[in-house]
Structure formats: C-alpha cells, structure tokens
Amino acid sequence: MKLYVKAFSSYRGDLNAFDVKKELKTKYKLDTRRQDSFIHLAVYGAQLLKDKIEINSNDELYVTSGVGNIDVLQKTNNYVHEEKEFIKPFDFINMLGNTTSYYVASSLGLKDKNAFQISDNFTFINTLVSVCASLNASKKEAILGSVDLSTNPEEVIKRVLGVSEETKVTSGVNYQKLSLSSLGALAEVEFDAKIHSLDEVEALLKKTKSKVVVSMRCERLDSKKDNEFFETMPSHYLNQAIETKEDLVYVDCFDDRYKIMKVNVLI
C-alpha cells in the first residue's frame, strides 16, 4: 500500500520546549479553554500543518496515539478517587478520545470524517493502512495526526506503554497531509498490514540503501535503535526523513512480529 505525503509538521517537547497553550492563544488566536495538555499538543501540531498547506473542509481526519489523553485521566482520577470530588463535565468530555480530534477538526475547519483510533502496538502503521483503505473508497485526502503526551510521574506512561523504567519517553505531535496522488508530493510512504518475520526483515535490511531506524522494541535485530520512545515514533521519523531528504526504512516490532514502513523522499 502507498500514500503520498503532501505536507508535514512536527513538534517534540524535549527538543523545543515552550508553552504550547500560550502559543495557541497568542500566535493562532485560538480558544484554549476547557482543554488540556494533550488537546493543546494535538491542536498545535495541526496549526503547524495549516501554516504549510491549504486544508480542505472535506479532508478526512485521523488522530492516533499510543494511549490517548492520559493527562485528563490522571488528573480526574486524582480528584475523583483521592480527593473525593465530583467529576467536572469538561474533564469527562475530554476523556473521550474523539474530543481531541473534535478540537483539531474545529481548528482546521474540517467537516468530514473524523476518527480517533488506537492500535495496540504498530498504531501508526496500522492507521496508515486504515487511511489508505478509506481514501481508496472516498477518493479524498487525509490529515493524519499522531499525538503522544508524557506524564508526571513518567512512570505512569511507561507502565501503560510497557517499556522499561530506564526508557526515555517524550511528548510529541506529528502530522502529515496524505493523498493517493503523487502530484506535488514530498514523499512516498510504503507499508502494509502484513506481519514480517525476523528473517524477512534481516534480508530486507541487507539489501536496502536507505537509512534504517529500528524501534527499541526490536531487541533481536542487530541494528541501530532509536534511544527514546513514544508509540507513534514512526510518524516522527517519517517527517524527519522528508526534512533531511533521506530515504528511510523504519522497522517496528512487538512480540517478535515486525512491520515495516518505507519512506522514499521525492524532493
């Protein structure tokens, strides 16, 4: 399966930390009330994308995440169960996954399909599969946002993600505008729903001339691995490949099952 990237945007909290909420209010004149850090992060990434490309109101929107809005769950869990307070209506609403995609859609003026989806492991590659199948049916274009927010303490998100206690986790948001058409595309992304074996992956990596990035979950693969983690990391590396104009093979893994995403930069 193939999709073409027409535009992209990235923000990583560990590389360029600033007050995202303030930036949304001052630079983009957006109402940030009744929202929380996860939603602010998602909307901010969307605005960065909007700065780069025209958004059509009938573009389809997909938002994916490793675990979703952990911030609001943590906060609400604290005051409901620890402090015995009554749940606040907007915290309840923000717990629903599609609240984030609603605010993203509103900030971009989107009125079409809007899906908040999560997949256990492989969440970014599986969402690409879903986006591609949807565009095959609708013949529209799609905006895909990948959002992951770290927690305080970090141990909460590490437990949820199932990574070791020493792993460096980061907050980040990455967007792509995706199309079935190569016209004016920055990059071609290849992926599929198929699971690969270790042997297949090793054979592919021997042949490839592209840069290779391997998820830290691929313990049995003898290759350079990313040294920090969030579930939608492939989305970050996809954008980075375009930024650096360097073709990429990204290998993701869980339970000895492998998935591959190839990025062929076209500019």
Binding site: G66, V67, G68, G97, I118, S119, D120, N121, T123, E155, K158, R159, V160, L161, G162, V163, S164, E165, E231, F254
Partner: peptide
C-alpha cells in the same frame, strides 16, 4: 514496576 503493555486496544 512492571512493563506489561496496556492500552485500550
């Protein structure tokens, strides 16, 4: 600490 992956899915 246990690193068992848990998500909604």
């Amino acid at each position: 600490y246990a690193s068992a992956k848990k998500s909604v899915d």
